[in-house]
């Protein structure tokens, strides 16, 4: 499912973020922007945002990445996961206007003492490889329900209608795909 060139860009993203944190490297920012801004816009559009709102949020996500570059910790998350969570929180905050983005603070705050399980701490490249390998292990069908449920925020009923399947089948496929992915990712920290 994943093309190799994109995985490579995902890996250098951590270096770009570090270059921003250490030297306010504008060229590194431009590289990050060119890779992620069009993808964040696409993701937000799929989640139901209008094109201009999605682009504004993509801009804001990348500007937040710039400002908070010093907070990025490759031992805790890959660059793409970190950027994903920034876009997620901004989307909730701006488009929904509710308190949900704050719900992510308490459990993020529990972390600074270090990884939950230091022995199994993976470096960024290992973790990235593992996530990609896990996604490749899923069937096309599982990836599809995963994308719809996870990525596009579809409820089970919606997915059933889109895929033209009975609701019970969709529920069990979502459950299976999630469990499989979780299993493959294991204690990812």
């Amino acid at each position: 499912m994943l093309r190799d060139g994109q995985a490579a860009a995902g890996n250098s993203a951590a270096d770009w973020i570090r270059a921003i944190a250490e030297g306010q490297d504008r060229a590194a920012f431009a590289s990050l922007f060119e890779f992620y801004a069009p993808r964040i816009k696409a993701m937000l559009t799929r989640l139901g945002a209008a094109a201009d709102a999605a682009e504004d949020l993509a801009q804001e996500t990348l500007l937040t990445v710039w400002r908070k570059a010093g907070y990025f910790d490759p031992a805790r998350a890959s660059a793409s996961a970190w950027i994903f969570t920034i876009a997620r929180n901004l989307r909730i905050d701006r488009l929904r206007g509710d308190n949900r983005a704050k719900l992510y603070a308490p459990y993020e705050m529990v972390e600074p003492e270090g990884p939950e399980n230091p022995d199994s701490a993976l470096n960024a490249a290992e973790r990235d490889a593992r996530v990609r390998a896990a996604l490749k292990e899923l069937s096309q069908e599982q990836v599809r329900v995963l994308q719809l449920s996870f990525f596009e925020g579809r409820a089970h009923g919606d997915i059933a209608a889109l895929l033209n399947l009975p609701l019970g089948t969709v529920k069990s496929r979502v459950r299976l795909a999630m469990a499989r992915l979780r299993n493959l990712l294991g204690d990812l920290q």
Binding site: M1, Q6, P38, M43, F84, D128, L135, L185
Partner: peptide, 25 residues
């Protein structure tokens, strides 16, 4: 479960890398 959420956030990052990019203005 915090680990579980982090694992799914990693999956979200990988899906983000893989999405067909939109055209920016």
């Amino acid at each position: 479960c915090r680990n579980g959420v982090h694992a799914f956030e990693e999956a979200g990052g990988a899906l983000l890398d893989d999405v067909e990019p939109a055209v920016l203005s």
